[in-house]
């Protein structure tokens, strides 16, 4: 198996992406979660840049720059400000204990890999073998949203799910058209703001960011 250095680097970064997804799943602290999220954005940006270099797809440079700007700098900064203002630096509680979550996560990863293997054989991109990883990160982020009790980690899970999707797009088809990517990036940004506003409202209403309280809103 002879693979070019860039492909190896992409594979390594893909592995790092998956690793960070798992790390987020196991993390208890909100601050560390944000830091991990920033790292994930970094890995994503780097891998996009490498793909851009190796395939000479120039629009990918823009998406790489955009990713770094948005996901490594801007969003973590917003999240930091959010938790400062909301004063929610405490540990995250999980619904299921962490080792069990991890085991479920491994099962999901195997499932994703099995699912992606036939698809990635069809794709002709240099990065096709990372499709399984992308899918796995999406599923893992989803899992993280399910098992967290507090609103802030759920949002981070949502954002990291977007990371996984972005990575999948890069690995399967060298990314979406730039316009679409810009649109998605804007959506994510706006989404974060809206979430932020919601957080304040939720806290005013219930004096806590515990998702459990939302159950009271249900009409009986």
């Amino acid at each position: 198996m002879t693979t070019s250095l860039s492909q190896q680097l992409v594979n390594l970064l893909a592995a790092a992406l998956l690793l960070i997804a798992f790390a987020m799943l196991s993390q208890r602290r909100v601050l560390s979660l944000i830091r991990l999220f920033a790292w994930q954005g970094m890995a994503l940006g780097a891998s996009t840049a490498i793909v851009a270099y190796s395939t000479a797809q120039h629009h990918l440079y823009y998406s790489a720059a955009l990713t770094v700007a948005l996901k490594v700098v801007l969003l973590p900064w917003i999240l930091h400000r959010l938790i400062d203002k909301l004063y929610v630096r405490w540990d995250v509680e999980t619904l299921i204990n962490i080792p069990t979550t991890m085991l479920v996560g491994i099962g999901l990863a195997i499932f994703a890999f099995a699912l992606a293997t036939p698809i990635s054989e069809m794709a002709s991109t240099v990065t096709h073998s990372t499709l399984g990883i992308a899918l796995a990160s999406v599923l893992l982020s989803f899992l993280m949203m399910i098992v967290r009790r507090k609103a802030v980690p759920q949002v981070i899970g949502f954002l990291s799910m977007e990371n996984g999707l972005f990575f999948a797009a890069t690995s399967a088809t060298y990314g979406m058209p730039l316009v679409v990517e810009l649109g998605v990036a804007l959506d994510v940004l706006v989404g974060t703001f809206i979430f932020g506003i919601f957080f304040f409202h939720i806290r005013e209403q219930f004096d806590s960011l515990e998702i459990r309280h939302m159950e009271k809103l249900k009409e009986d």
Partner: peptide
């Protein structure tokens, strides 16, 4: 978990 992931990625990279 890390070790298992490493193994899975190894199989994936070959497949």
């Amino acid at each position: 978990l890390l070790a298992v992931l490493g193994m899975l990625i190894h199989f994936l990279g070959r497949g």
